[in-house]
Each structure stands twice: as C-alpha cells, then as structure tokens.
Amino acid sequence: MNARAARPQRTHRSGPRPPSLGSNLWTLAALLALLALSAGSALLKLGAFNEVANLGIAIVKALLVLTIFMRLKTDNALLRIVASAGFAWLAVLIALSLADALTRVSLLPPW
C-alpha cells in the first residue's frame, strides 16, 4: 500500500493557527504607543538613561514584531532558534568590536 496515501491529508490549515484580529491590532497600538514614548523620552534630559530608553524601547518593539507579526510565538520552535542565532551573532559582532575599541590604550613609542 502506498505510504503517502495512507497518511491523513495535511494542508496549511494544520499549520499554526492565524492570530486573532484583536492581537494584531493591540500589537499595532502598543507599537505606536512605544514610538510616542520613545520620541517623548528622547526630548527629556535623562543623561545616559536617554540611550538606555531609546534602545530598550526599540528592543521591546522588535520583540513585539518578531513574536506577534512574524508569529515566532506560535510557529515552529526551529524558527525561533534560527532567529535567535541571527541576533546572537550580531551581539557577538558588536560586543567584540566594542571590547576592542573601549579597552585599547595608546602605547607610547619606546624611544
């Protein structure tokens, strides 16, 4: 007997279920609110915390897009691993570049 015929027919319908309309719209509302927060906080004098707020909000926004819009929350776990690997290599790239730039001391010539 043909093995393929014996298997129940699976279609895309058996893949991850589409997210609800509400979750998509709430995500958009949250993203726009975070954008307003980001623009507002940038105008306040917070010192080094300005940069923390800027990047922190950007990371939260990116995570919202990744998990809800790109469906990493509900889709195959393998996709989460590949996506994390991309960002992990980026973190290595920036961390090692910074480690060099921030710890380099200018040596005086010995003569």
């Binding site: 996709l79 290599w89 980026l90």
Partner: peptide, 24 residues
C-alpha cells in the same frame, strides 16, 4: 516533501536563514 506542512516548514526555515543573514 511528504505533505504541504513539511513543504511550508522547509520554506519558512529557509526564509529565516536568509533573514538571519540580513540581520548580519
């Protein structure tokens, strides 16, 4: 591919591998 689900998984995995190169 065995079925459409496996085909979709292969396609999305390939796309994410491409997106990881875009991230870099």
């Amino acid at each position: 591919f065995d079925d459409p689900v496996q085909q979709r998984e292969a396609a999305t995995l390939g796309m994410w591998a491409f997106l990881a190169t875009e991230i870099l």
